[in-house]
């Protein structure tokens, strides 16, 4: 059987076409990376994140919002802002009591696998 040909959808992998009607348009809306770091740090601390967790988050490329600001501002400036916010805001904490909602009785599950001898399940 011939392989089915799927269209190649990923634009990065497609060869560029000379007449590709690609136009690049964009407006610059200036922001303030230091304000971004300050606000995000306040948010995370007010959400109960500890200072070491916040610092670790700002080093992780998986969490771009702080990381990108670190790349743009540099380590020294970012650490200075983080330190300032941690000292000013502290770590917010709260005590949560949620009413018990789960039925803890164990449930017996029967799991069956399809048979391989062709005689049905």
């Amino acid at each position: 059987m011939a392989d089915i040909e799927y269209p190649n959808l990923d634009p990065r992998l497609r060869p560029a076409e000379p007449d590709h009607p690609m136009s690049l348009e964009g407006d610059v809306i200036s922001g303030d990376p230091a304000l971004l770091v300050r606000c995000l740090a306040e948010e995370m601390l007010m959400g109960g994140m500890s200072a070491p967790e916040l610092t670790a988050l700002s080093h992780s490329p998986q969490y771009q919002s702080l990381y990108a600001a670190r790349v743009s501002l540099g380590h020294e400036a970012t650490d200075r802002i983080l330190g300032e916010v941690i000292a000013r805001v502290g770590v917010f904490s709260s005590e949560v009591w949620e009413s018990p909602i789960q039925d803890e009785t164990p449930v017996a599950l029967t799991v069956s696998a399809p048979r391989r001898d062709g005689k049905g399940d």
Partner: peptide
Amino acid sequence: DKECVRVTIKEPTFE
């Protein structure tokens, strides 16, 4: 109308 959650705000901690 049964209580399902209770949250108490505590003072911030500083390291």
